[in-house]
């Protein structure tokens, strides 16, 4: 069982399946464009300024319909995130009224938000959310960037493992936010739905949420739909994977360590076996 025979087997399998796979992909919708995300690749980390801008878009636009129940105000302070100061985060939390209770007389009451509260949902339950959104449920955004993807097909799904491409979800969200267009000739869009190039089936209940100049950026970043979409997608990625920075940092240390240990073990093993023909 030599390497050559293994490679031969793999190549044979690849040839066998490359043809039908590429033939089947001809009919697919446009694939989302791959953007160059700061957090892609083995050394990729979140861009703090971008996360802060993305948070602003999320706060002022998305969160008026979407919940984010696993996202807590305290997350705004933690390392590897938008890194607001504790005072800033407390102030942001205090802008929201949270239902708490029951108090000593058994009543629920409203109080300003604290760091230990999760992001308040815009609707009390799914039914209310549907009723206010024409029957469609705006999905919770906490892990949305990991819950969305698109079909890559062969051989892309193999090469992605080697180049460590994991950003399909954010690519899709960015593409969706910028993918609103007039429907092509002959396509009838149902009432209450909107044409979107990247949404599966092309008809989405959410109207185009972003427009140029809608959210004010104070750092001179262009206030365009594309920029908003990029920033908020990056923010959603952080919300879905808040420990990415630590993961990649520790990962690099572990890999270097294992390479050193493997090398040492290899030479030790070689030494021990040196007198035995095998």
């Amino acid at each position: 069982m030599t390497i050559r025979s293994i490679l031969f087997g793999a190549a044979a399998a690849a040839l066998l399946f490359a043809a039908p796979a590429s033939a089947a992909e001809g009919g697919h919708d446009d694939r989302p464009a791959r953007l160059s995300w700061s957090f892609a690749g083995p050394f990729g980390m979140y861009d703090t300024a971008q996360l802060q801008r993305g948070f602003k878009v999320f706060k002022e636009v998305c969160s008026s319909c979407h919940s984010a129940n696993f996202f807590y105000f305290r997350n705004l302070v933690q390392p590897g995130g938008p890194r607001f100061s504790e005072a800033q985060a407390k102030q942001i939390a205090a802008e929201y009224q949270i239902t708490d209770g029951p108090n000593d007389s058994g009543d629920m009451f409203q109080r300003p938000g604290r760091l230990s509260d999760h992001w308040p949902a815009p609707f009390p339950n799914d039914q209310a959310a549907r009723a206010s959104n024409g029957g469609a449920l705006p999905p919770d955004m906490s892990v949305l960037a990991k819950a969305r993807s698109y079909h890559v097909g062969f051989p892309g799904f193999v090469t992605d493992a080697f180049i460590q491409y994991q950003e399909h979800g954010v690519d899709y969200i960015h593409a969706l936010l910028t993918g609103y267009a007039e429907p092509p000739e002959g396509v009838h869009v149902q009432s209450g739905l909107h044409y979107n190039k990247y949404f599966p089936g092309n008809q989405i209940a959410m109207p185009a949420p972003l427009s140029d100049g809608q959210v004010e950026y104070t750092d001179g970043t262009p206030q365009t739909v594309d920029q908003y979409a990029t920033d908020v997608s990056a923010f959603l990625m952080w919300m879905a994977e808040p420990h990415l920075d630590a993961r990649k940092r520790i990962g690099f240390q572990v890999v270097i360590f294992l390479i050193v240990l493997s090398g040492l073990l290899y030479f030790t093993k070689k030494k021990v076996w040196s007198k035995v023909p095998h």
Partner: peptide, 27 residues
């Protein structure tokens, strides 16, 4: 291994074993 197994060779081998063991323990 030739017939002149010197102490230097032995210590190099010992160093390898000790280094591997130590790094493994850290791991």
């Amino acid at each position: 291994m030739a017939h002149t197994e010197t102490s230097q060779k032995a210590s190099r081998r010992d160093f390898l074993y000790i280094a591997t063991g130590a790094v493994g323990a850290v791991g």
